[in-house]
Computed example of a mutant assay.
Amino acid sequence: MTATTAQTASVSVEYIRYRVPADRTADFLAAYTRAAPHLAASPHCVDYELTRCEEAPGHHILRITWTSTADHLEGFRESGLFPGFLAEIRPYIEHIEEMRHYAPTPVRGKGAAIPSLYDWAGGADAFSRLTTAFYDKVRKDDLLAPVFAGLAPEHAEHVALWLAEVFGGPPEYSRTRGGHTHMVAKHRGRGITEPQRRRWVNLIQDAADEAGLPTDAEFRSAFMAYVEWGTRLAVYFSGPDARPPAEQPVPRWSWGAVLPYEG
């Protein structure tokens, strides 16, 4: 299985709404603190969060993202982790007002409170400088020049659009070129080797320095996480046994550890 088949489409979000008497809220939070490791240890649990209402402090909502509803009901609840979890929260079951599973919808997004990697990098100009510097290095590199021989003059511009969209910029690559499957097709049959991939990674880092991309640890770690993911897929899809992926959108990368097709 490759990263392109990460199971994100079938996730199920469980919401459990509690109304806990004021004199029991401290014990309630303590019980969930003890129960949480059982959730965290489950391979079916993606994440979880317990929130408390500011206007009505007795109201709490537990959100648990499961890999699927079936994985919750037939996986976690039938596993050895469930009895320990249940033992901690059993005294508060009587305070549950709702316990249901919800499926994600396409209506979602991120606000402007946290800048995208695209904005943090400096926008379209930054990615244009990056690919210009990178392909200038590629053309002079004995290991990579043969791989990129014969590329169209506008190739660097297309890759700049791709990277800009990946890191949170406008969907110009999708609009003018296509999605992830289109990019994958550009690598079919090229037989990219691991030494060539490593050289690509090194040169893109050098180009990022030359282009003046941010050097803070948070940005560079996210940037390089995508570079590693993308170049390893490129090696796979350039090989003789690779199967072309189903039609997929351009991945969207963000700060921290994320799944590229999350949602």
Score class of each variant (00 low, 15 high):
A6T: 09
Q7A: 01
T8N: 02
T8W: 00
E14A: 01
R19W: 07
D23G: 04
D23C: 01
D27H: 11
F28V: 02
P37I: 02
H38Y: 15
H38D: 09
L39N: 02
L39Q: 08
A40K: 01
A41I: 07
H44R: 05
C45S: 03
Y48A: 00
C53I: 00
E54T: 04
A56K: 11
P57Y: 04
P57V: 06
H60K: 00
S68C: 01
A70Y: 07
D71Y: 11
D71A: 13
H72R: 06
L73G: 04
G75Y: 08
E78V: 07
E78R: 14
F82R: 05
P83F: 15
P83D: 15
G84Y: 12
E88C: 13
I89P: 06
I89F: 06
P91A: 15
I93L: 10
E94P: 05
I96K: 01
E98M: 07
R100I: 08
H101Y: 02
Y102W: 10
A103Q: 13
A103K: 15
A103D: 01
P104Q: 03
K110P: 02
A112R: 15
I114Y: 12
S116N: 06
L117W: 03
L117P: 00
Y118M: 06
G123Q: 10
A126P: 00
F127H: 00
F127E: 03
D136N: 13
K137P: 01
K140L: 11
K140Y: 05
L144G: 04
A145Q: 09
P146R: 04
F148S: 02
F148L: 04
A149F: 12
P153I: 02
H158N: 11
V159R: 07
V159S: 04
L163D: 03
L163T: 06
E165I: 14
V166M: 06
V166H: 08
F167A: 13
G168W: 03
G169I: 13
S174H: 07
S174Y: 08
G178K: 13
G179P: 07
T181G: 09
H182N: 10
H182Q: 13
K186Q: 15
H187R: 06
R190E: 10
G191L: 07
P195N: 12
Q196G: 11
R199P: 13
N202D: 14
I204P: 05
Q205P: 05
D206M: 11
A207C: 06
A208S: 13
A211W: 09
A211F: 11
L213Q: 05
P214A: 14
P214G: 15
A217P: 03
A217R: 14
F219T: 10
R220W: 08
R220V: 12
R220C: 14
S221F: 12
S221K: 05
A222Y: 10
A222I: 15
F223I: 07
F223N: 12
M224A: 08
M224H: 08
M224N: 15
A225G: 13
E228Y: 15
W229Y: 14
F237H: 14
S238M: 12
S238I: 07
A242M: 11
R243N: 12
A246L: 11
P251G: 08
R252N: 03
W253A: 04
